[in-house]
Design a protein around this nucleic acid. Sequence first.
DNA 1: GCCAACGTTGGC
DNA 2: GCCAACGTTGGC
Length: 135
Amino acid sequence: MPQHWLVKQEPSKYPFSQLQKDETTRWDGVRNYQARNNLRAMKKGDAVLYYHSVEGKAVVGLCEVVREAYCDPTAEEGDWSVVDLKAVRPFTTPVSLEQIKATPALKNIALLKQSRLSVLPLAPAEFAAIVRMGH
DNA sequence: GCCAACGTTGGC
DNA sequence: GCCAACGTTGGC
C-alpha cells in the first residue's frame, strides 16, 4: 500500500507546470525537521499531491516518489534530505484551499492544522477526497 | 502589505 | 532550561 503525501511550493518558485516539463525533480531546500522526517518516510511509488501556496492556494496535480530520501546536496551544513518526484498528471480542476476548508471529510487535514508545514502526510481518505474533487 | 503562527537563536 | 527577540511562512 503506497502512502499519501502533500508537498507545498509557491508557483512563482517552481510551479507544477515546470515539474511536468522537467518530468522529475529533486525536492531540495527543505529546512524544517518535521518536513524532513516526512521526506525520509516516503517510499518509492508513494502518491504526492502538489499544492501551490501563496499564489493559487490550490492542489493542482499529482506526482509520485521515484527516489527515496538521500542527502540534500544543497545543504551547506546540517543533516537534510531530499527525494525525487515525478509528475503524474495535473488535475482537471484545481482543488482550492477554500474547497478543502469547506469539505467536512478534510477538516482534520494537516494542511489546515499545520499551515506552515511544507511536506505533510495525508490519510488515504483525505487523499481520495481531494483526487475525487480535482480528478 | 499586514499579521498570526510557529520555529530558531542566544542571553541569562 | 527558560524565554525574549527575531526570522520565515503563508493566509488574508
